[in-house]
């Protein structure tokens, strides 16, 4: 029997689900290997007997939690899909600001109509079995993870920094061009796509295990760059982690 798979979204831009749709288009064999029973963005039918749940988006209000917990209870395997679910991601930028200010800034005196709390990764609420990092996810990595899961294996994630991939591609390092890049501390796996297109890494795949912070500061010092500017980059996707560790 084909494993039943479902997709869910919380606070997100749905870009990761769209990337899934893209992958399914070019790899239709996946549709033969699994049965999709829920994918709100693409179908009307709703099945509740799924074994694998892909969850996109951050948890950003108390009422998200019971829904996520129900998904966790049903799914044998729960996969975080993309930076919002994996890290808290872009949604967590606001965590560094007073919540009430944020609400009033957008909604003025109607702020009380709406429920919210600091945005967090899904792993802050339930145990997560696998992660597909990135904002958006990398479609090849999505396929790799699904294949590994179908074989009952734990999907591998690179634990070396992005610079390794970037240097293999022989790009001129952003630091030599006066730019900023989080490559030295960010988990590889996207093929260093941002440096490939001329921009520094923004850290959307999260930190490698044991990032070498001293080496990072040395690089900054060597190139006359500021920690503030680096932090501004890191907190695009890493605000939740930065606030959890209280430093970086």
């Amino acid at each position: 029997m084909k494993p039943k798979v479902a997709f869910f979204d919380f606070t997100s831009c749905e870009g990761c689900q769209l990337t899934v749709v893209d992958s399914l288009q070019t790899h239709t064999e996946l549709l033969d290997a699994v049965e999709i029973v829920q994918f709100r963005e693409a179908m009307t039918e709703k099945g509740e007997d799924y074994a694998v749940a892909f969850v996109e988006g951050s948890i950003s209000r108390p009422s998200d939690e019971p829904r996520l917990k129900r998904i966790r209870e049903q799914a044998a395997v729960l996969v975080a899909l993309g930076a919002c679910a994996h890290l808290g991601g872009i949604n967590a930028i606001r965590n560094a600001m007073p919540l009430d200010d944020v609400r009033r800034y957008v909604y003025g005196d109607k702020a009380d109509w709406y429920e919210t709390y600091p945005a967090r990764p899904i792993s802050a609420v339930v145990p997560v079995d696998a992660v597909i990092p990135g904002c958006p996810i990398d479609r090849n990595e999505f396929l790799e993870v699904v294949k590994a899961l179908l074989l009952g294996k734990k999907p591998p994630l690179p634990d070396y920094p992005l610079c390794v991939e970037c240097k293999l591609k022989e790009h001129t390092c952003l630091f030599h061009k006066g730019g900023y890049c989080l490559g030295p501390v960010t988990r590889a796996g996207c093929g260093a796509i941002c440096p490939t297109y001329g921009d520094g890494c923004e850290g959307c795949r999260g930190l490698i295990p044991d990032p070498n912070r001293n080496a990072m500061s040395e690089v900054l010092l060597e190139h006359g760059l500021t920690v503030d500017a680096m932090l501004a980059r890191w907190t695009m996707f890493g605000t939740y982690q930065q606030m959890e560790t209280g430093k970086k």
Binding site: I90, D101, V102, R103, Y105, V106, E202, M236
Partner: peptide, 19 residues
């Protein structure tokens, strides 16, 4: 769910807004 993008842009470098 709430997004708050306008509030989140405040205090960020202008080069990040589009990203």
């Amino acid at each position: 769910t709430p997004r708050f993008f306008e509030a989140m842009l405040r205090g960020r470098p202008y080069t990040q807004s589009s990203h």
